[in-house]
Design a protein around this nucleic acid. Structure first.
Lengths: 215, 215
DNA sequence: AGCATGACGTTACTTGCGGTAACAGCAGTC
DNA sequence: GACTGCTGTTACCGCAAGTAACGTCATGCT
């Protein structure tokens, strides 16, 4: 009685098993969202709970492993867009579009990554507030900040500025994408163009409207 | 035996009670974060669970009531900054600063509003993905989009553009603020200035750095 | 061979939370 | 005085996370 067909024989059975479990978990999370239960995941994998716990420690561990996989994949495609040989505006638009296309194609994955619904029975309160935010946003922000620092000449205090911009731009992309995905008020291309325009300072350039409210 | 000192006698006991319960819940959520249990909240209010459920239906109802209170408060102060009589750059900076000052002053509240950790025992999967995002972001985005549409002359397709920008800018502010609150890499004033600079198109103006990586 | 180690797997349990009966006191009110 | 409606209670259900204790088979060491 052998396993039906293993993808590659070139790795330890433990790693192989872990991959299988992660893939099963993936299927369940894609189907049920972040509220997928450990029982359900175990059942999907054809086993029972304690094995999951032996492999991943706790639910957070499993989810972290899943998130890392997807995050890595998304970051890889973003890096590709960021590294395309074109002028800055083109690269920015390509990156925005890549991100939006990804979340559009896999909304469940996106939702899982952004709202992990964490819970640790013993979180200390107070100082490390922001830590619970979706780690994907942080990673993307840091990454983009680094790219900006490398490529754009920002004068003094460039380092700090670049990081701020990285996180800010990622947040802009994320929030706009989240809203767009829910309401679909326009095409993806329009959204990309509008966001790029925003980054290109069109808010500052535009005139006031006649008869402003404050006067 | 009278209640110690009631704020106003001008309301029905039911409303009065509801306010008291919400204040107790507030205290617990501020102390324990979003994972505060209904038991704990009930205990803090000096009563037991079923009363909470009679007043708020379920946990989501209570949290929604709490969130609405805080969201309204934050939006009110943001509107004040947005309406200050000054030029656009000043208003933008004032609004950013107001937001950041708020989350800096009440990080627990902020965390609660942004990560409600919702759960409904019967969520349908698929179409309404983004719905679970923090409603505060949506409200702020819509609000800002409206303000932009009212005040800024954007030519054709102004409506759509303004909403996109509203959500985008709010997302930028949020993500940058979240990161900043966690790492405190610079002063609030510096963060405000950098973000305003980003919105003012300094990313587009800046030169490439000598020796870009692509070539 | 004999035996220890350790991965894989199970059943059955504990704990804790959201949520819900079912019941008890105590207004007002016709 | 009984009816209504509010306050409050204890005690329970269902369910999910996480754990304990046990069984089983392969491997490798002496």
């Amino acid at each position: 009685m052998d396993i039906a067909h293993r993808t590659t024989d070139q790795q330890t059975p433990a790693e192989q098993r872990r991959r299988e479990l992660l893939e099963a978990a993936d299927r369940v999370v894609l189907r049920d969202g972040p509220k997928a239960s450990m029982n359900a995941i175990a059942a999907e994998a054809g086993i029972t709970k304690p094995i999951l716990y032996r492999h991943f420690g706790d639910k957070g561990g499993l989810y972290r492993a899943l998130a890392t996989r997807h995050t890595d994949a998304l970051l890889a495609s973003l890096r590709a867009s960021l590294d395309a040989p074109a002028d800055r505006r083109r690269r920015v638009e390509a990156t925005l579009d890549t991100y939006l296309a990804s979340i559009e194609a896999m909304p469940q994955v996106y939702r899982f990554l952004m709202h992990p619904a964490e819970e640790s029975h013993q979180t200390e309160q107070g100082f490390d507030v922001g830590r619970h935010s979706a780690p994907l946003l942080r990673r993307m922000g840091e990454e983009l900040g680094q790219v900006i620092a490398e490529r754009v000449d920002l004068g003094p205090a460039a380092e700090a500025q670049a990081r701020i911009w990285g996180h800010g731009i990622v947040g802009m992309m994320h929030a706009a994408g989240d809203w767009w995905l829910g309401e679909r008020p326009c095409s993806r291309a329009e959204l990309v163009k509008s966001l790029a325009d925003l980054l290109w300072g069109r808010l500052a350039e535009a005139d006031d409207r006649p008869g402003g409210p404050g006067f």
